[in-house]
Simulated scan of single mutants.
Amino acid sequence: MDNTTWMAAHPGQLYFIFVGLFHQSQHPALLCMVIFVVFLMALSGNTVLILLIHSNAHLHTAMYFFISQLSLMDTVYICVTVPRMLMGQVRGMNKISAPECGVQMFLYLTVGGSECFLLAAMAYDRFVAICHPLRYPVLMNHRVCLLLASGCWFLGSVDGFMLTPITMTFPFCRSHEIHHYFCEVPAVIKLSCSDTSLYESLMYLCCVLMLLIPVTIISSSYSFILFTVHRMNSTEGRKKAFATCSSHMTVVVLLYGTAIYSYMLPSSYHTPEKDMVVSVFYTIITPGLNPLIYSFRNKDVTRALRKTLNIHIVRKQIITSLEERGQEMCT
């Protein structure tokens, strides 16, 4: 069933039609395959990272706890947008009902907002670890980590609860074609036939606060970190500090750069094509890159991965050996 047939069959239901990435591509099948591969890599990479952190005792520290939370957010983020987009392309029906659009919008706003605050919590964690190493176990104990992570999820959900209901209650009397591949707020409100200038100002203010607070924490934390690292006598200590912080800053630049473009730049800077390309970075590419950034550049994670693989190999060898001995005894 294509979009036209579905529209005729549901005349009274509010729906939207995605006019997204595949409509702009000359090779939609190839693009679909590439996105599917990246999706599988992101999903498996983040899942493996979460399992490694929770199954290895020496990774039960504040830093890895926050990394596991980041992987969880990235997993939810990419699962909210990509599967529906790929299924729509395969089935040839890129429609979404208004309630489904609202749920998708709420989830991506919640996870995106939570991730902004989580990166600030991770920067604070690195500040305490490098600038106050002796007090680190006390200042960043498990209870504090749980409170910080819960606060990040709560603040992200506030963003979702604020923006989603207002966006979805606007009257949509124009074309129902969303020039995007998921229900992003700026793309949806363009379809409204009412004056949205006040709401756009509110959304801008909300985004400024959600970005300004974390950016202030991150900037302050790294200013103190750079000052402390500069005074270090140990070359090895400097390298370790820079390696840890550079991984985090790479993720910060990717997420905040795209968020600032999408939600804070004036509409004159935006076109549907540019918006979709920028959205690809924080909904598809960044969730796929984060496991690579935090695993391949981290000796503790790679060591834990090798240890886990070796345990499974040895266990399999023992089981095979026992089965062979059992067969010999039976014969």
Results as ranks from 00 to 15, higher is better:
residue 193 C to V: 03
residue 62 A to S: 14
residue 108 Y to L: 08
residue 141 N to T: 10
residue 220 S to V: 13
residue 174 R to K: 14
residue 171 P to V: 05
residue 265 L to M: 11
residue 194 S to G: 02
residue 27 H to Q: 14
residue 67 I to K: 11
residue 292 L to S: 05
residue 203 M to H: 14
residue 281 F to K: 02
residue 306 R to D: 09
residue 136 Y to G: 15
residue 309 L to E: 03
residue 172 F to Q: 09
residue 25 S to F: 04
residue 84 R to A: 10
residue 244 T to C: 15
residue 48 V to L: 09
residue 142 H to M: 14
residue 125 D to Y: 00
residue 329 M to I: 00
residue 264 M to S: 08
residue 208 V to N: 12
residue 73 M to H: 12
residue 198 L to P: 01
residue 288 G to R: 00
residue 237 G to V: 09
residue 275 D to P: 04
residue 21 L to H: 09
residue 216 T to D: 06
residue 43 L to F: 11
residue 169 T to G: 06
residue 65 F to A: 08
residue 60 H to E: 11
residue 46 N to F: 01
residue 263 Y to A: 07
residue 169 T to S: 15
residue 242 F to C: 04
residue 133 P to E: 12
residue 305 L to N: 01
residue 285 I to D: 02
residue 85 M to S: 03
residue 146 L to A: 10
residue 35 I to K: 01
residue 74 D to M: 14
residue 20 G to M: 07
residue 217 I to E: 06
residue 185 V to S: 09
residue 297 R to T: 00
residue 199 Y to V: 06
residue 25 S to D: 08
residue 54 H to K: 13
residue 23 H to E: 13
residue 131 C to H: 09
residue 298 N to K: 06
residue 46 N to A: 02
residue 239 K to M: 12
residue 261 Y to D: 06
residue 138 V to P: 05
residue 103 V to Q: 08
residue 41 M to A: 11
residue 241 A to S: 15
residue 149 A to L: 12
residue 315 R to Y: 02
residue 285 I to H: 01
residue 246 S to N: 14
residue 178 I to Y: 02
residue 89 Q to K: 07
residue 41 M to T: 12
residue 316 K to V: 00
residue 253 V to C: 05
residue 99 P to W: 03
residue 20 G to A: 01
residue 115 E to N: 02
residue 56 N to E: 10
residue 94 N to L: 07
residue 222 Y to E: 04
residue 157 S to G: 10
residue 172 F to E: 10
residue 159 D to P: 03
residue 246 S to V: 07
residue 303 R to H: 12
residue 293 I to L: 06
residue 93 M to N: 11
residue 277 V to N: 07
residue 26 Q to C: 13
residue 82 V to D: 06
residue 272 P to M: 05
residue 22 F to Q: 05
